[in-house]
Amino acid sequence: MGIAELRAESKTASESTAALLRELVAHLGENRTQLREEWIRRITEGRLLTAMSKDEIFAEATSVYDSYVEALETRTLEALQAYAQNLSERIIPRGVETHEVVGIVLLLRDVLARSLFSKYHADSRLLNAVLDAYEPAANAIAITVAVGFVRERERIIRQQQEAIRELSTPVLQVRERLLILPIIGLIDPLRARQLTEQLLRGVRANRAKLVVIDITGVAAMDATVANHLVLTVEAARLLGARVIVTGLSPEIAQTLVNIGVDLGKMNTVGDLQGGIEEAERLLGYKVVPIAEPMPA
């Protein structure tokens, strides 16, 4: 159940449901200390939140409890959503797992439900009415917290993947107008795309005239990635930069020949050092007036 349904629920809720929820909230407020202790006891018993200290669990439990009761009272989930996101941001780096977060919220739901049983057990009709009001709201709260946690985790994972990809292909400026792109490890099509984007933006940002792509650390590449490498070299040329590829393994050389690369377009030098020397030589033409101009 989402916020919309919970709101719709609250809109169409009879006055008696609203009254019941008010009574419920009053009950949870009065018994706050005792119910919170009971909940923390069950969290400890269930070996949840093991990454956190007792004091931390107490502090978080208090906040969650109060937010929970507030969500029941106001019958809106916005505040709880914000709190769940904030909580997730704090506890995900601590290594708290999804099952723990879902677990503690469900435990709180159970602890509160039990206290409703013991309060209203004498009157089963009233108990049913109270549970009818309580259950949908409690479930909506549990879902909100769980979804908030999972979303935050997915966001962090995406962010980390992005960071890892960027770290794995640094664009380094070694001389004015000379960039080096050392590529290490496996290149899949997605990484190849990222690499191209970084290279082309790097050329523009650093006003590079020459780029040395060193693939010594790449053992093999399939035809798709090899083709992509060729496209990257051509795109860099369109920007006005010349690319030297160094460190081709025999396997990659074979792949490039098999896909029919136009070797006239691809400038290759044996190793990185040779590539840098060649690049410097080409850049050097600029300051030696009798030299031939750099060919396009």
Binding site: T196, E197, L200, R204, K209, A235, A236, L238, L239, A296
Partner: peptide, 23 residues
């Protein structure tokens, strides 16, 4: 030529062969 534009051009096979390009 902008980086994204260059990327699209080479995908199409449009490499402006024989034409000088500069930054």
């Amino acid at each position: 030529i902008q980086p994204d534009v260059a990327f699209a051009m080479v995908h199409m096979g449009l490499t402006l062969e024989g034409v000088t390009t500069r930054l």
